[in-house]
Design a protein around this nucleic acid. Structure first.
Lengths: 170, 170
DNA sequence: TATTGTTATACTCTATAACTATA
DNA sequence: TATAGTTATAGAGTATAACAATA
């Protein structure tokens, strides 16, 4: 079990509190998801990029960086790796040759389908303790909080980075 | 807004899914909490240690490390900092002089009270969108999942580390 | 001169391994 | 020799700053 470390503790006197449970479960969910996509030889940041490209193909690296909330420099290596792997493609914009437009390849689309499968399995495993009614309840509550907290669309900041080598099926 | 980076994206076709929302909200909660305790000049790992000591005073660093799931080496610096600050205290065990027993000082207990206040404010802010009934519902659902996933007591692995300098009120 | 993408650099955090002292 | 704690080292990951090409 590759732990990250010393952290938090429940609010002294009474039990944990929902905010703490949220943080604890969120870290757990992120970790488990990282394990699963590692089987596809992917890290969460790579998955995020693939999905961002799929959501709106042809954007420049600058646009992607802004959308994902990351410094543009970081996208370089990310795109590099996925391009060498043949799932992403950079195309020069003839009108403005400074820009690259980033697209998924066919292999990229196939990979994305795999990712979808993995995500569904992950979702199922995470919610195993709840019946359908409870799952719907939970979703409603979480969505309400997310909206209230102004969380952007589907962008997740701060997934714990889990190196693929660290990931031999726990 | 000091972001961590490119990550994830919602399950392509349909909406986000609860597992993703959980991860997203969890990261958000951890981040916000880190901001709040930074006002007390503390990091989440420090808070975790303080609470662990409070929960069972007098344990050795080895025991604390095991309880928190972190390498013992890491506790050294953590205890050092909090001891210099006067909120923790190391006492030699006369029976076995290799061991230290770690205790809270009076200042440490005061600080812990502050932390409790901060944690309650955090909880309130996170759940602002929900009424009392909904809060109770959410808590029940989260606790059920946490139990099912075998999450240890009140230990949170993987809080995003937020350096106090990074923390000028967002 | 401004902007896209890139490379180079530095910094933070954490873990692993080597060392000291007690037993 | 084994164990508690410490120090020293190295690694992963990220951000900041300097650079080249294009506009």
């Amino acid at each position: 079990m590759s732990s990250t470390g010393v952290c938090e503790g429940q609010p002294a006197g009474r039990g944990p509190g929902s905010a703490f449970l949220l943080a604890q479960l969120g870290a757990h969910a992120a970790y488990r998801f990282a394990e699963r996509v590692a089987a596809l030889d992917l890290t969460p940041p790579q998955v995020g990029l693939l999905r961002a490209v799929a959501a709106d193909p042809g954007r420049s690296q600058q646009e992607l960086a802004q959308n994902l909330g990351t410094p543009p420099t970081r996208l370089v290596g990310l795109v590099d790796g996925l391009e060498q792997r043949g799932v992403l493609q950079r195309r020069r914009n003839p009108a403005d040759r400074r820009l690259y437009a980033v697209y998924l390849t066919d292999a990229g689309n196939t990979l994305l389908t795999e990712i979808g499968r993995v995500a569904r399995a992950h979702e199922d495993a995470m919610l195993a303790a709840l019946d359908d009614t409870q799952r719907a309840q939970l979703y409603t509550l979480l969505a309400r909080i997310a909206a209230d907290q102004h969380l952007t669309a589907g962008v997740h900041p701060g997934y714990r980075t889990l190196s693929p080598t660290d990931t031999k099926p726990a």
